[in-house]
Write a protein that binds this DNA or RNA. Structure first.
Lengths: 154, 154
DNA sequence: TGCCAATAAGTGTGAAAACACCTATATTCC
DNA sequence: GGAATATAGGTGTTTTCACACTTATTGGCA
């Protein structure tokens, strides 16, 4: 059952325009999706950005990626990548080594433990995706993806 | 020109499912919209949550709202409302007073300055909305709102 | 009436984010 | 070859977030 944003945020007046409503809807929905995943990640001591890093690094196996490359692939802007990776390294989820012939670069990779945690989370997160979108048909999900791409492209 | 999420985050492999892609698309688009507005707010020393509070309080004039009511209307979860309001009070944007017959409640209202800043920002933010959604027809914007409502409702 | 749960707000404390600045290595191009 | 520039990564510091805990006031009800 779709809820209107106006009800959810108890807004008494109508939105200034459909664009404003869409703007706020995207932000609120995104925040809600993040909250849902973070609730799942919490038992593992992971934040959403950390989980995002794990997934990015899995997609880049076995070569690994340098810090800036990881940063550029993040879902959200992340200006302090160094210390995010520091924490993940301290937690044993990733490893870093200066091994390239360009000695400025530090290659980041998943550790065995990072891979294990990620594998354990896969079904949980997939189920969360399914739960969130169960009210939409596949065609609707695809339409949503198209519309959001247009927003980002615009 | 709509961009695909896979290109944007340089993902080499296809998404596990349309739902996963939609999930990530909502989050990324939301973050991008927030970043855009925060860039506009920066000259005013405002964060997105602070701006959100200002708008909520304007919608509740002249009665004002208690802390929890503001919190519940926020676009994103905000567990430390007290200190967010502390900062805004220190910045002269809002006022707080314990005035209800229920002496637990503290009523929060816009100050003149808060109203002024908000009015100054209105056209800027409206232009940003227009810019972001210029690639979509009104029908598409409305369809997007509907789809997102279904995601939140599901 | 008086106890107890519920509600509103605030506090203490540590973690994380944000921003500007700094260092080391590579590349360009004269 | 070497100065200037660009790029990769890291550091210092402040602000903000997040969570658990505490205090004050109210309402319910035995």
């Amino acid at each position: 059952m779709p809820t209107t944003l106006r009800d959810e945020i108890r807004q008494t007046r109508p939105f200034a325009s459909p664009k404003e409503e869409a703007f706020l809807s995207v932000i609120r929905t995104g925040a809600q999706l993040v909250d849902g995943v973070e609730r799942l990640l919490r038992p593992y001591g992971l934040s959403m950005p950390q989980y995002n890093v794990l997934r990015i690094l899995r997609g880049a196996e076995p070569a690994g990626l340098c810090r800036n490359e990881v940063r550029d692939r993040m879902l959200t802007r992340m200006p302090d990548m160094t210390r995010l990776l520091d924490r993940m390294e301290a937690a044993g989820l990733i490893s870093r080594s200066r091994e390239s012939d360009d000695r400025r670069m530090v290659t980041t990779r998943l550790t065995k433990e990072g891979r294990r945690v990620l594998a354990e989370l896969d079904p949980v997160v997939t189920a969360e995706h399914a739960r969130r979108f169960r009210g939409l048909t596949t065609a609707q999900v695809k339409a949503l993806v198209e519309l959001l791409a247009a927003v980002r492209g615009g």
